[in-house]
Design a protein around this nucleic acid. Structure first.
Lengths: 202, 202
DNA sequence: ATAATTAATGACCAATGGGTCAGCAAGCTT
DNA sequence: AAGCTTGCTGACCCATTGGTCATTAATTAT
């Protein structure tokens, strides 16, 4: 009956801890989350956590990276695979992708970035390199492609792909602040796409 | 030479403390700001601060209210005074107002709300009643007026005045996270106004 | 089996910071 | 000028929590 009191699972621990931390941060934010709480959720002692992550901040960075990386990969894959025209791509996969963001972990990342960015310049740099600049670059490329093949005219939008993301950001922030008060985020994002397309169509 | 070590200025203290707190919160955020730091900035002892504000949270709420109230008043006044047509109002005073927001204290308030909203439901309620719902209501009214007098057609925008604010929010968040990396927020907001107007014009 | 290795524990430490309060002194009253 | 009220101070308290480390026990090697 000697149930061992724990198992040694060196391989799995980091991810388990990271996932537990994400869940905790999502609920309470970074500062308000106690390291011990993360450990408890991961079914692990606080001491072990500090064996895998030097400080609470290191853990935080690892969490952001772990959430962000797969999502960016998803986006770039979608972009590369597709052979749709620019407008069709925007109305199809891009719209779907953007509409999923407000309800996804991305939303938590945004909240954490806004709260903690000023204290973590290296994390901002990472986020810029791996998410923002790549995403915006892809959008710019898409718009330029549309111009090149005559679908779109060249306009201010070419230099401001942030216009696509503005209603996504609005939806995310709305969700954080006014959790309950409903807003039709799908409609918001879709209408923006409609407007932009009407505005830039050749 | 008996310089008095302090003066009694019961009337001015609350505002002085509130202003010092705003400056401190703007730099470090709510949690990272120590009450003692606020007191120091206000040129006051920590004990006195607690004479005027029961807790750190009460101070926080007072700060938000003090920043938000005058700004809302400014907006509503502008709206009421103006006798411009809907489009002219949007391209004129409304655009100017929105373009000022990202560089204004409003930006700090947004950051604080995003970070602290989950812990301060009553503050969210206050913000909703006094800022969000009034601002959105005014925009809705403006759009309806435009429809009524034949300037605009009725469209999805009538139910989603958040579309106007989306690039403002984007600019604010951008400024918080990527402080240095520049974004032409004026252009972003102006282009959005152009797009919306093109989209809804009768 | 026995020894060696190291994943894992949890009691503990030290610093931080919100909040208190006994006492001091500015400035008013008489 | 003496006394009184109260705005104001700053030393202090103590709960919280990030981080450490001596110890334990699961696993592997011999």
């Amino acid at each position: 009956m000697g149930q061992p009191r724990y198992q040694r699972r060196k391989e799995d621990r980091p991810q388990e801890i990271t996932e537990a931390a994400f869940a905790a941060f999502a609920e309470k934010g970074f500062t308000a989350t106690k390291v011990e709480e993360v450990a408890r959720r991961a079914g692990v002692s606080k001491g072990l956590l500090y064996l895998y992550f030097k400080t609470k901040e290191e853990l935080f960075k690892a969490v952001i990276r772990s959430v962000v990386t797969p999502r960016v990969d998803e986006l770039t894959r979608t972009l590369e695979r597709s052979e749709l025209g620019a407008e069709a791509f925007i109305r199809g996969p891009l719209l779907a992708f953007m509409q999923r963001l407000p309800g996804s972990p991305a939303s938590v990342v945004v909240r954490l970035m806004i709260s903690e960015a000023p204290k973590h310049p290296d994390l901002v740099e990472y986020y810029w390199q791996n998410v923002a600049s790549r995403g915006l670059g892809a959008l710019r490329q898409l718009l330029d492609r549309g111009v090149a093949n005559g679908e779109f005219r060249r306009s201010a939008v070419n230099d401001l792909p942030q216009l696509f993301l503005a209603p996504v950001m609005m939806s995310i922030v709305w969700g954080i602040v006014f959790a309950d008060r409903s807003l039709d985020t799908d409609k918001l994002i879709e209408t923006q796409a409609d407007m932009i397309l009407a505005y830039i169509k050749a």
